[in-house]
């Protein structure tokens, strides 16, 4: 389970002022649920996920992964978290099994257990032919499979996917989508980000709309449709963005 509470992440700008990449964001993702963080490029999706995965420290507020606070127990958070993004790099000079074993060991999993899980996943994802190959000789699709196995080698209860299909061809993207579904079926808590409305519509149980670092709305697709009386997710999104812009203007007038 992911619990985000009043999360703020600011970056210093060159002129000395601050840029709020994430501004007071709060939302929850439950076990067995796929939650989509939806927003345009630069909305703050990646920053939110980097904070959740302990790459960045929050400027204010906090979040919990499986009950572990990201500020106080980053190591526990990482143990309970699988992270995958569309442009994840791999160590080209390692062989596939070496690569997966490396990350398994970093999670303090015993070699026997790593082998068992690796065999299981290789069977499942049809990877047996290239487990001994060096990663530099793999195709994009193969590499993506290796990344998938890497992200779940420690069988984490929470999965975070940052733009998981960006830059991938249709077939490889489909692998990822079905992998995300399978995570949900196994009762994992899944958070994924995208700027593609269709992807969100197809996969998500609930949608969190994020714009300029702020959460505009949150809920199931049905609930959002009802609230905005729009059917298309595109229109729903634009509706909320317009409303938010209007609010900012009103606030500006008030002061």
């Amino acid at each position: 389970m992911i619990k985000v509470q009043n999360l703020v992440k600011e970056f210093p700008k060159k002129d000395g002022s601050k840029f709020y990449a994430v501004n007071d964001a709060s939302f929850i993702a439950n076990d067995g649920e796929i939650v989509c963080l939806l927003g345009v490029n630069g909305a703050g999706k990646t920053t939110t996920m980097r904070v959740l995965s302990t790459v960045f420290q929050p400027s204010a507020g906090t979040a919990e992964i499986q009950g572990w606070d990201i500020r106080t127990h980053p190591d526990k958070v990482r143990e309970n978290l699988g992270f995958l993004s569309g442009d994840t790099g791999l160590y080209n000079r390692l062989r596939v099994h070496e690569f997966i074993r490396y990350f398994g060991r970093l999670y303090s999993i015993g070699d026997a257990e790593i082998n068992r899980r690796m065999d299981e996943m290789a069977e499942l994802l049809d990877m047996k032919d290239f487990m001994d190959k060096k990663i530099e000789f793999l195709s994009t699709g193969m590499k993506q499979k290796v990344s998938i196995v890497r992200s779940i080698i420690h069988d984490p209860p929470v999965m975070i996917f940052d733009e998981p299909t960006s830059g991938l061809d249709i077939l490889t993207a489909r692998n990822i989508v079905s992998f995300i579904r399978s995570c949900k079926e196994r009762g994992k808590c899944v958070l994924f980000s995208t700027h593609i409305m269709r992807e969100a519509e197809r996969l998500a149980d609930r949608v969190v709309l994020i714009h300029k670092g702020k959460i505009l709305a949150e809920g199931t697709l049905e609930a959002l449709r009802e609230a905005t009386s729009q059917t298309d997710l595109d229109d729903i999104f634009i509706h909320y963005v317009n409303r938010s812009n209007l609010e900012t203007e009103v606030q500006a007038h008030e002061f």
Binding site: P74, T88, G89, F103, Y107
Partner: peptide, 17 residues
């Protein structure tokens, strides 16, 4: 090199400090 190959982030979210 890890930054260039985009592997650094992967390493940082794994089970190592």
């Amino acid at each position: 090199g890890e930054k260039e190959r985009k592997t650094l982030e992967t390493l940082m979210v794994s089970g190592v400090g």
